[in-house]
Amino acid sequence: MPPSLSVSALSKSYVVQGIRTQALSDVSLSVDPGALSLISGPSGCGKSTLLSLMSGLSRPDRGAVHALGIGLGTLDDAARDAFRLAHCGFVFQGFNLFPALDACEQVQLVLDYQGVPDGEARRRAREALELVGLGRRSHLRPAELSGGEKQRVAIARAIVKQPRLLFADEPTSALDSVNGAVVTTLLRDIAHRSGAIVVCVSHDPRLIARADRVIEMEDGRLLRDSRDPCSPRRLETSR
């Protein structure tokens, strides 16, 4: 059965210094497996909040999140931790790699926490690094890697456990055009090849152009949903 991810009537607000901000209002959405889905929009439009709720990192005020047939809103913290450990991979804007570990160890660490035996974990970590084109640089620490390479290590770390849900938050915004393109292609290939659900939050036009589906947001609501990124309307709105 292909993985599934849907949200219905999601609302979320934050209170910062006594002021309530409505981050999401009544958002409903279903995400396809095997495709790179991109949530796009201006700063503060609620796209990162939506990613946080879809991935079970936080709870909605109202509405429901169903991932792989499980209602994430009904799970307690420990159960959501276990769900993410089993099924979710994450790529963040700041690569968040441990300075003391080499690339292979950064990736292997995830499998260690899943209880994968050491030898197998190391082999799978190397394979994941091969997949992102860093097989020959697996012995290097973050300080010895370029920004693009660090993000590829972060992607290897996200995909090594073969997650059915992969979330990426602004994965290309700290990268130059060449590395941004490499990372974008990687994320789309992973979605196509593994059949996983890949949800990416970005306002990077390079990524928008390569996404299979672009969901645009504004003021905490869905504005537009384009399944064919090359349609004239799509290009018009992205300019």
Binding site: A82, R84, G89, N96, V110, Y113
Partner: peptide, 15 residues
Amino acid sequence: ASTPQYATLRAIGVA
């Protein structure tokens, strides 16, 4: 100094 790294481990489900 390692807060973002620890937060990333929390994101991937490390308790």
